[in-house]
Amino acid sequence: TFYNFIMGFQNDNTPFGILAEHVSEDKAFPRLEERHQVIRAYVMSNYTDHQLIETTNRAISLYMANL
C-alpha cells in the first residue's frame, strides 16, 4: 500500500520523511487504501500545508512508477 511505501521514509530528513511522520500520526489516514485517487483526495481534503500536499503528489507518482 501507499502507507507502507511512505513509512519506509520514516526518520529520513527529507520531504518524504516529513510526510511519513505526518501520515504515521494521522489516525484517520487510509492505511489500507491502494487507489492513489482516494489517497490524493484524502490529503487534499485533510491537509492544509501546501508543501505536504506537493510532497504527497510526488510520493504517489514515485509509488505508482514502482508498482
Rank of each mutant, 00 (worst) to 15 (best):
T1I: 05
F2E: 01
N4Y: 10
N4S: 13
F5K: 00
F5V: 01
I6V: 08
G8N: 11
F9C: 04
F9V: 03
Q10A: 14
N11M: 08
N11R: 08
N11W: 08
D12H: 12
N13R: 11
N13W: 06
T14D: 05
P15T: 07
P15Y: 08
F16T: 01
F16S: 02
G17T: 04
G17S: 08
G17N: 04
G17E: 03
I18P: 03
I18C: 08
I18E: 10
L19H: 02
L19C: 02
A20R: 06
A20G: 03
A20F: 07
E21C: 10
V23I: 15
S24Q: 13
S24W: 09
S24D: 07
S24L: 14
K27R: 11
K27M: 12
K27L: 12
P30H: 03
R31Y: 07
L32F: 14
L32T: 13
E33V: 05
E33P: 03
E33M: 06
E34L: 13
E34V: 15
R35W: 05
H36W: 14
V38H: 07
V38Q: 07
V38W: 08
V38P: 04
I39E: 00
R40F: 12
R40N: 06
A41D: 14
A41S: 09
A41P: 00
Y42L: 01
Y42R: 00
Y42V: 04
Y42A: 02
V43M: 12
V43D: 02
M44W: 08
S45Y: 09
S45K: 13
N46S: 09
N46T: 11
Y47T: 05
Y47Q: 01
Y47W: 14
Y47M: 04
T48V: 09
T48H: 12
D49E: 09
D49Q: 06
H50L: 14
H50F: 11
H50V: 14
Q51D: 14
L52K: 02
L52W: 04
L52M: 07
I53N: 04
I53E: 04
I53Y: 06
T55C: 06
N57T: 09
N57I: 15
R58N: 10
I60W: 06
I60V: 06
S61M: 13
L62R: 06
Y63G: 00
Y63T: 01
Y63V: 03
N66C: 11
L67V: 11
